[in-house]
Simulated assay, not measured.
Amino acid sequence: MSLNREPVSSLGEPRVLYVVWELGNVSETFLTQTAKRLPLDVRVHEWLATPKEPQPGSHNILERVWRRLSPRPSKNTNADRAQNRFREQLAATEADTVLVDTGPLAMLVATVCKELSIPLCVRFHGVDAYATRLTGEGGNNYRDVFQSAQSIIGVSRHMCEQLKQVGAPDEKIRYSAYFVDPTLFDTSGINTEAIRFLAVGRLVEKKAPLVTLMAFRRALEQCPDIRLMIIGDGPMEQACRQFIRASRMSHAVELAGPLPHETVAEFMSASDVFVQHSVAGTDNDHEGTPVGILEAQISGLPVVSTRHAGIPDVVKEGVTGFLVDEFDVNGMAQHMITLAQSPGLAQQMGAASREIVSSEFSFDNTLGKLARILTEAAKVPSGDQRKRL
């Protein structure tokens, strides 16, 4: 895939083949930014770009992933063709190391990398590190990946501990946080007349949108002028609409559906407080570090969220926002009331949010650390030890 690359920072950097399921979706903006901004010689390989049979009735990426992981009677499968195509791009790029996003994709890539003695780095993102249906019992599905990978990357400290629990060797685990582009997000002043709350994310179990709505309903009773916009769609959308209607909140809550990234940034700059009630879902599904929270903070918004997975890494309690335990509806509602009734505090926390995220989660810090991990991996094995393609 051809990308408008940012200038690299140095000469002689390792050649990295960055393997992803696909780019181009609104939800994959972070992956595209990684490919463009990583200060190394990067080429991208999109696994799902492989020609495949029609799959009527679903465009869900997880279902498409499972089709490729499912055993098939014929040797001429999509997975076989995808691996051959991957080999061809390895030959074309002469990669020094491979960076793979998500554990399931690493399961497909690891065999080829091991065979050709090309160092493999695997970055986990959320569900792939936690959900038993993906990790297998005790991490059994990832055993070969953990054994052959040079580095195993978690995007939160909580995830790094989780990876250790499912069998990743401690000495291979690296922490490399997400990042946010400050140039895409602007700040706005607090609206002292009607505080505008914003939530962004898929309407799925681990985002717990109904819990957010329950908390907002209680806050609305105390602060009748506040408003809430929820951006995103998902399987819980109809349940959310029913709850809003049954709670007589249609005048105060808007479900905006999925929006382009640029439009989301505009709504963030026009909002006052970001809310997200993340919880552990069925099958132990967890967040990684929600990019939406980082984007809200760089927009100068205080955050009300939960002590869940990587969120405490990026939200400093009492400084950039408030955190509650999972399913603490009353606690979340009270913090929403506090910020609605104290616009000065909200503005102070929002300013701290932008300052801290600009410093700690900048391109230089986060992608610089990832580049160092990949550069170190590229040294093992050395070029003269590597099998030629």
Rank of each mutant, 00 (worst) to 15 (best):
86 F>T: 05
85 R>T: 05
59 H>M: 03
75 K>M: 12
72 R>E: 14
56 P>G: 13
118 I>Q: 06
75 K>W: 07
113 C>P: 01
109 V>C: 06
91 A>S: 01
119 P>M: 13
107 M>W: 11
110 A>G: 04
128 D>G: 05
46 E>F: 01
45 H>A: 07
90 L>P: 00
124 F>R: 04
65 V>P: 00
59 H>R: 10
128 D>L: 08
43 R>A: 07
93 T>Y: 01
40 L>H: 00
110 A>S: 06
82 A>C: 03
63 E>D: 12
36 K>R: 12
83 Q>D: 10
67 R>M: 04
73 P>F: 15
53 E>P: 15
118 I>F: 00
46 E>K: 01
64 R>P: 00
65 V>Y: 07
69 L>E: 14
80 D>Y: 12
51 P>K: 00
94 E>F: 04
39 P>D: 01
134 L>D: 14
83 Q>F: 01
62 L>Q: 12
88 E>L: 05
38 L>R: 00
107 M>D: 09
48 L>K: 11
109 V>F: 07
97 T>A: 04
142 Y>P: 06
104 P>W: 09
108 L>A: 04
63 E>K: 14
97 T>R: 03
53 E>K: 15
116 L>M: 13
134 L>S: 06
95 A>M: 03
60 N>D: 12
60 N>W: 02
135 T>M: 07
76 N>T: 04
125 H>K: 06
57 G>P: 05
62 L>S: 11
114 K>R: 15
105 L>G: 08
98 V>Q: 00
56 P>H: 12
137 E>V: 11
50 T>Q: 07
74 S>G: 07
105 L>D: 03
131 A>Q: 14
75 K>S: 07
109 V>H: 10
89 Q>Y: 02
80 D>T: 10
127 V>K: 05
137 E>L: 13
38 L>V: 05
38 L>F: 04
133 R>M: 14
85 R>F: 01
101 D>S: 14
117 S>G: 10
102 T>E: 09
124 F>S: 10
123 R>G: 05
50 T>W: 01
140 N>M: 08
101 D>H: 15
95 A>I: 02
49 A>W: 05
71 P>Q: 09
142 Y>V: 08
102 T>Q: 14
140 N>F: 04
36 K>L: 08
99 L>T: 00
114 K>W: 09
85 R>K: 06
87 R>M: 07
